[in-house]
Nucleic acid binder design. Structure first.
Lengths: 334, 334
DNA sequence: TTGTAGGCGTTATCAG
DNA sequence: CTGATAACGCCTACAA
């Protein structure tokens, strides 16, 4: 049996409320009695029942987090930052994954809501195009923060992908490249537009022609990536660089180039995005844009705690955009 | 305001208990009334208050999980399996990390315990040598399952590292290697002993001499790994293969060999352990022992649910050992 | 300074 | 079939 306030009260022949107060160091309880109570509590290894406290206080000090895929390094890095920050603030994390399925995502939102978490953070699944679920929550004044995979209508934390795309492309231009291709992601991801816009902006800024046939969209699956390079290779016009939507795309691309005896970093320069572990593990090491996932985690928690703690209208649209930076490695540097 | 049973009762001029029963499809409530109540509940978007239910039922349908590092792929893969299985069984996961610190681990155990989770799963931190915290919990009859980083006195789920080491070494022997070095992990990890024992067993089985100077321990940090190869290279006697404690060690080793113009897969064969993404991303691709982390996650949850649901003494020592298998790639195959 | 009483939202027991 | 009533463990006016 776990010990309760009542147990302590009974043993000390006092009342539950006195015990409760003593344990909270309430000033109006005599020092003597307080000590006695606290000692006994320690002795009996008293643990306040969180259910009762939650019920009373209507708060669980728990936040729900939904990620598409727990095992994607980018997300686990974010979670790491979240965990750190949440704990520093006395919160715990109820973490679950959507598996990139809208249905599952919806279900998880329900679960978390039912579990009475104090707020929900989510990186939306690839499939999600309808944000009704989130809107419903917000309508109820329930704190929601989107991170990484976001939507302009919600409080969000994500990296500055536009500038990331710009930096990547600018770097290629400065390395002397004239014909820079871009393998873009699927349209429904916000990041796709942003990275592509950064790419376009750099071309404009440095007065290079924009050629739509140099922009190829991939659904990010391996086959699609390979198909994308082939498309580029089959054009009559040559290219001397590729800015890839992410590091995994870059990896796949480079494998194909290798087969064709095209040397990355010399014949063709490649830049990835995400600065994932793969970028330093592959050969050649990949120049990539860092997104500070750990920081994304920290900022997301801070934002939601902010909206939980301020009784102010939580619907103020808030967006935190984290700086991206280019990490130069051998794939663009000979 | 969120709606409660009382609200519904009031509107329908009935009692709270009737509403409660109707919502649970209790057989002794008239079909008509049940329908009316359920309809209104849906309309008002009634959500049962989990705090109250938990308080009443003394169970939270929540499991606590502690991992050393959320962003290590091996663990996030395990978590993925856990999440899947937990949800299928109606449980949620409170996930946190120890950062490989005993202090932090202890704190997290306390947090989870206070949060009234129904059980705790943990992969112990590297620093942990004293299992007192876990013993305390077990003494109270509190369900604890260790996974991956385990201890023989507790219910555990981990991979068959002995056989993994055996398979890896046997493979090297069958590839014709005669002088096989082993870069082992730090002693306090159980896996270290197991993998090394597997290695020794294979040498014995195939009648190869055991040479202690071929076994070098590393603390798994990069410097330590590099130091380890150097030690091997400086021996008077040559070696033709290295079985590494894990894939990251293998990666570091291979980098050093490359610098020395020693060709992996030809001059020296290398086997890693873990079959992590890095093993297919590096060049050459690494032969490695797969540990089925996703399965570890599944089995761990099943084990703890088992001990939660069976009122039988939870202290039955239980151990689930998952099969390992060798994945052959270019680092041992020319 | 301390105790009593009521309530948080649900469930379960016991009458009716 | 339905409705009080108590209880889960804790907190907090309000009294004393």
């Amino acid at each position: 049996m776990t010990t309760t306030l009542k147990d302590i009260a009974k043993q000390l022949k006092t009342s539950v409320s006195t015990v409760s107060r003593a344990l909270q160091n309430h000033p109006r309880i005599s020092a003597e009695k307080t000590k006695k109570i606290q000692d006994l509590a320690r002795e009996l290894d008293y643990q306040p029942n969180s259910f009762a406290i939650n019920l009373k206080k209507k708060t669980s000090k728990t936040l729900g987090v939904i990620v598409p895929e727990l095992s994607l390094h980018f997300f686990s890095e974010i979670l790491s930052g979240m965990d750190e920050t949440a704990h520093r603030n006395g919160y715990q994390l109820l973490i679950c994954q959507s598996g990139e399925k809208v249905e599952r995502e919806k279900e998880q939102i329900q679960n978390l809501y039912k579990a009475n978490v104090d707020g929900i953070l989510v990186a939306v699944s690839k499939e999600t195009s309808n944000f009704g679920n989130f809107d419903l929550l917000r309508k109820k004044g329930f704190p929601v923060v989107l991170f990484s995979r976001t939507h302009p209508n919600f409080p969000s934390v994500h990296s500055d992908d536009i500038n990331g795309g710009f930096l990547a492309t600018k770097h290629l231009i400065q390395q002397g490249c004239k014909t820079i291709a871009h393998i873009a992601g699927p349209w429904h991801l916000y990041a796709t537009k942003d990275r592509q816009n950064g790419y376009l902006k750099a071309l404009e800024t440095y007065h290079l022609p924009i050629n739509q046939s140099l922009i190829i969209h991939s659904d990010l699956e391996k086959e699609s990536n390979i198909e994308a390079v082939h498309q580029l290779l089959n054009r009559e016009q040559n290219f001397d660089a590729i800015f890839c939507f992410n590091d995994y795309v870059a990896y796949d691309i480079i494998q194909v180039l290798k087969e064709k005896q095209i040397i990355t970093g010399k014949d063709v320069l490649i830049v990835g995005f995400g600065n994932q572990p793969i970028s330093t593990q592959m050969e050649p090491k990949l120049t990539s844009v860092d997104q500070q996932p750990y920081q994304i985690g920290i900022k997301s928690i801070e934002m939601i705690l902010n909206s939980i703690n301020s009784k102010i209208e939580t619907s103020i649209k808030q967006t935190e955009i984290l700086e991206t930076m280019l990490i130069v490695r051998n794939s663009t540097y000979h």
